[in-house]
Design a protein around this nucleic acid. Structure first.
Lengths: 229, 229, 229, 229
DNA sequence: GATGAATGAGGCTTCATTCAT
DNA sequence: AATGAATGAAGCCTCATTCAT
């Protein structure tokens, strides 16, 4: 998906030449599956609809993937790969510590805003206790590099005396992701129980600002060390 | 479910007296449905299995609820009711501001830990864009009271000069919930991509401490007022 | 199948009253499956056609049997049961030894003539190395009683000095069955390679006479003991 | 298959020279198909697996044979040819009558033991009422020569006064084949219903001895002439 | 000639829901 | 009220065959 730079042009059903192109077909299938899984979750997705989206016959799916499960794994690998490469494009080393954190938060959040599929896919996968992810070699420890880069950023901040010590990088990253992800994933129910419209652009921006402040306040709090907690 | 104090006694198939008790039957069905939906999500849940769990026949389900959808609404209402009444049991007015926040965070988190069903059910409902919740009168604005009470707590903190001003209570509550919910909901995939075991009691406690610190640091940051953000 | 005396009336699709009768439905399904498997073998049989034969919907099959395999097991159990009870109806003890053998041969042969399904079903099962039969408790050692009765008959013949000694009853029974079964099962190919019409009543009777002679000659040959073989 | 002496070298995917050899390719395909049909029967066989076995692409199959049916015919012709030439290699004229019969029984039986495919293929074909064989010119009356040679042997025995008169050669040959074929084909189910292990070498030899005795006793029974049967 | 991608009909099985009893 | 048999529309997947390259 991420490879080949063929992305963007979504759901085109065999363009131009119409010639056979297995590589491309594979991508078209993953793309179609991604949409279908994203709109309906794993259990709600229908292989028939995936086929329809590709513009090809149902049998083709099974020519490329051995099962719905297998296809779901491929979609997960694809989308995680995409998130990671999006992350990697952000060179944290170029920023001052605080600006780096801001960028990381904003980029990550923006990815979720632009790719609501990610949330549905990952929720689906957690419902199934990550049984597909566990089968995927390429996803294991995928974010270790990011951890390291984030770690370096934090260290620089600590050396400059502007960031607290005692930061668990994974916990921090989970918070950075979670503050945005939870909001975006649960906008619909939250909107009902709080009787607020959380679906628009405005709500999204309010959220980003709030969560950025929260994370930075946490990191900046130099004195918390001598506190009792 | 939460009502009547009949909880705890799970899945008993009409005890002792054997007399027909429609109210009770209704609760038994909701209980069974809750388990089934929680383990499999909406699409993964099976009406047959729900019937089996109740120990009654499938016809009974349809006598009490007109469809799977209808049953799902009932389950959602039940579990939201439960969370709310759990929240209400915590009298925030009795606590000093900071302690009140701590209590709220801990109680809320503990509820999710004790009721993993909540997460699956709510995720399922968001996948379907809250179409069931919208049909439910009883859930609309359900958390407005909590907002008010939280608001009061914050105000007291602000009056005492220990909490920042400029706090959006809904955003704050979303963060309080989200920091724990996201972690608990996504433990499986997070565990794989970070290659960490996040499933145990230990990881749960580390999380609680981290998120408590984060929220409190945010609230305590008195100087952020003069910042531009 | 064999039970209830409801046999004979084949393939009736819910007679008279049309009332629900699970016992009867089960039998109707087995009956339909038996026909379908008999005409097409296991792999050639279609669950759709079985359903059509029952006059009910396809789902019913799965209400009574968990899979095509499971249904096949039921059919095998039914037909073996039938052969056995047919055998048991023949009281060998009432006959003189030679007449008893003649009766056994004729009855067994007649069963195959009347129930060509048996042959197809058993051939199918052997193609699959009896994997279904092995799962069936009721079929294990089903013919041990017959072995015993045949044994007694042989013994009487030996005491009267008209039957040879040294008879392996199972080998004998395999021959009695095989001489007829093989012919009936392979009539079509045999007819082609020998350019003979083996399909009619005439050929069936010629076969019976030939095989009866062969078996009896084998049993009567008192002197073979002192032979070298 | 049997032709050309190219047998033995199984399933090699175009060896050494690599030059195109249509004759050889045809044989390779038939060989592969034979294995596949033998292991799974006609309906259970898969054209994909046949292609895989040949090491060539599926298109090649359809280049040489117009359909699965067509391929099955070719396999049948091949294997019948093989049995016939195996038979022809046995020069019955060289033996004394009784020894000739023994040889014929043993050779035929051994062929089935060595070629379990034959049994599955022929059973499959009979399930389909020999519809393929009927299309094959080369198989019609294929065993007429053998009948003649067997006839001569019997005649010699009759002239020597050691064999009965009144022998129907085809019936006799059907018995000779059937006594072994039935046992070998139905070992699995027979083993279950008689609770005996019939799969080993031992059981095979016991069977051969039993059936040889039976056939010879039948032929030797000189007195049966005056009987009425 | 050769490949294997693509087709489409159809195979087995499931499932929410209805309905006879 | 209650049961669970029955329905029928789908769901996932397979497979002989065709066809673009």
């Amino acid at each position: 998906m991420v490879a080949k730079g063929k992305r963007d042009s979504e759901s085109e059903a065999q363009p131009a030449g119409k010639k056979r192109d297995p590589e491309r077909t594979r991508l078209v299938i993953i793309e179609a599956a991604r949409e279908e899984f994203a709109e309906n979750g794993y259990d709600g997705a229908r292989t028939d609809r995936i086929a329809t989206r590709t513009g090809m016959s149902k049998g083709v799916l099974y020519h490329y993937f051995s099962s719905k499960d297998d296809l779901f794994v491929a979609v997960l690998e694809d989308i995680y790969q995409e998130l990671r490469s999006q992350n990697e494009a952000l060179v944290l080393a170029e920023f001052e510590p605080e600006a780096g954190i801001r960028e990381l938060i904003a980029h990550t959040y923006q990815y979720f805003v632009d790719h609501p599929e990610f949330i549905v896919l990952v929720n689906s996968e957690n419902l199934m206790k990550a049984q597909h992810l566990e089968r995927s070699e390429s996803i294991r420890s995928m974010f270790t590099p990011l951890s390291r880069r984030l770690s370096e950023l934090i260290s620089r901040g600590q050396e400059q005396g502007i960031f607290r010590s005692n930061v668990d990088v994974v916990e921090l990253y989970v918070s950075i992701v979670g503050l945005g992800y939870f909001f975006l994933a649960n906008r619909w129910t939250l909107g009902v129980v709080f009787n607020r419209d959380l679906l628009g652009k405005g709500a999204e921006e309010v959220r980003l600002q709030h969560m950025t402040e929260m994370v930075l306040d946490y990191l900046r709090n130099v004195k918390s060390l001598d506190g009792k907690e």
